[in-house]
C-alpha cells in the first residue's frame, strides 16, 4: 500500500526540481505510475510531470529525441520511431504486459528507475543513447547506469544518435508477457558494433569484448561466447545464473547474425 499526501502538478521543471529537493526522501516524480502500487511508500509529495510537455518525439540535428513522457506504446506506433534502427525500439517493448500498460509507462520513468529487467534500457544502450537531466545535463546512458543515480534531478529526454544504425533484439520470456529471463540488443553501423545484455538479472551492460570481436569480423558465434564470458549473471525466480550465461551466448549470436544478414526481415 502506498500513500500520497500531496499531489502536485508543477508548472515548470524548475518548480518540479524544487519540490523534489525540498523533501528528497518524501518526494518522488511520477512517470507512468505503473510501479507505484508495488512499493510500500509513503510520499509526502507526488510530483506529476505529465503536464510539462515532455512527451515530444523529435528528429533534430542528427538525433532522435524522445521526451521523458513518451509512452512505450508510442515507440510501437510513431513512424519516426518505428522507421529507425530496424524498428527495434517498438519491437523490444512490445511484450511488456499489454497495450494498456504500455500506454502508461514512460520512457523517462523506465530509464530513470534503471530496472534490471528493462527491455528498453537494453535496447537504448545498444544505440549509444544519451540521457538528459534537467540539472545534471546530458550524459551517456552507460555512464548514468554506472553512476549512483541522480536523486533530486529530473530526466527530461533520451537522445539517440540518428546515424542509420541497424539493430536487432532478442529476448527469452517464460511466458509471452513476462519480464525477460534475458534481453539482448545488438546494433551495427558499418563495422562498429554494440552488444547490450539486460535482465541478467542485473541492469543492461555492454559486452565490449563481444563488440570488438564483431568489429574485427570475428563472427557471431565467437561474439556470443565472449559476451557470455565477460558479463556477470545472476539467479532469480525466473532462471539461474548458469542458464542465463548459456542463453546469453545464443541470443547475442542470433541478434548479431540477424545484422550480418542485413537486419530484421532479411532472410539468409
Amino acid at each position: 500500500m502506498y500513500r500520497i499526501e500531496n499531489y502536485v502538478f508543477p508548472s515548470s521543471l524548475e518548480e518540479a526540481c524544487r519540490l523534489l529537493n525540498g523533501d528528497l526522501r518524501g518526494s518522488a516524480v511520477l512517470g507512468g505510475g505503473c510501479w507505484l502500487r508495488l512499493g510500500r511508500r509513503h510520499l509526502r509529495n507526488a510530483v506529476d510531470i505529465s503536464r510539462l510537455g515532455l512527451d515530444g518525439i523529435e528528429e533534430k540535428e542528427g538525433w532522435l529525441e524522445l521526451g521523458a513522457g513518451v509512452t512505450l506504446r508510442r515507440l510501437e506506433t510513431d513512424l519516426a520511431v518505428t522507421g529507425r534502427f530496424g524498428g527495434i525500439l517498438g519491437r523490444s517493448v512490445s511484450s511488456i504486459v499489454g497495450v494498456q500498460f504500455r500506454n502508461m509507462v514512460t520512457v523517462g520513468g523506465t530509464v530513470y528507475a534503471r530496472l534490471g529487467f528493462s527491455d528498453l534500457i537494453t535496447t537504448l544502450l545498444s544505440l549509444d543513447a544519451r540521457v538528459v537531466f534537467y540539472r545534471a545535463g546530458e550524459m551517456g546512458l552507460g555512464e548514468y547506469l554506472a553512476s549512483n543515480g541522480c536523486p533530486g534531478d529530473i530526466l527530461t529526454a533520451v537522445r539517440i544518435p540518428d546515424d542509420g544504425r541497424q539493430a536487432a533484439y532478442e529476448s527469452l520470456r517464460r511466458s509471452r508477457t513476462d519480464f525477460p529471463v534475458l534481453a539482448v540488443a545488438v546494433s551495427r553501423l558499418g563495422e562498429d558494433w554494440r552488444v547490450s545484455v539486460g535482465a541478467r538479472p542485473f541492469v543492461a551492460a555492454r559486452a565490449e569484448r563481444a563488440e570488438a570481436c564483431l568489429s574485427r569480423g570475428g563472427g557471431a558465434d565467437q561474439a556470443g561466447e565472449l559476451a557470455a564470458q565477460e558479463l556477470r549473471f545472476g539467479s532469480n525466480l525466473r532462471a539461474g545464473e548458469d542458464y542465463r550465461r548459456k542463453l546469453a551466448a545464443v541470443l547475442v549470436r542470433r541478434a548479431a547474425q540477424t545484422l550480418e544478414r542485413g537486419g530484421e526481415g532479411c532472410e539468409g
Binding site: L30, G32, A46, F101, M104
Partner: peptide, 10 residues
Amino acid sequence: VLSCSYPAAR
C-alpha cells in the same frame, strides 16, 4: 489505460 495504476488526480 489501467485504472488501477492511474492516479485519479492525473
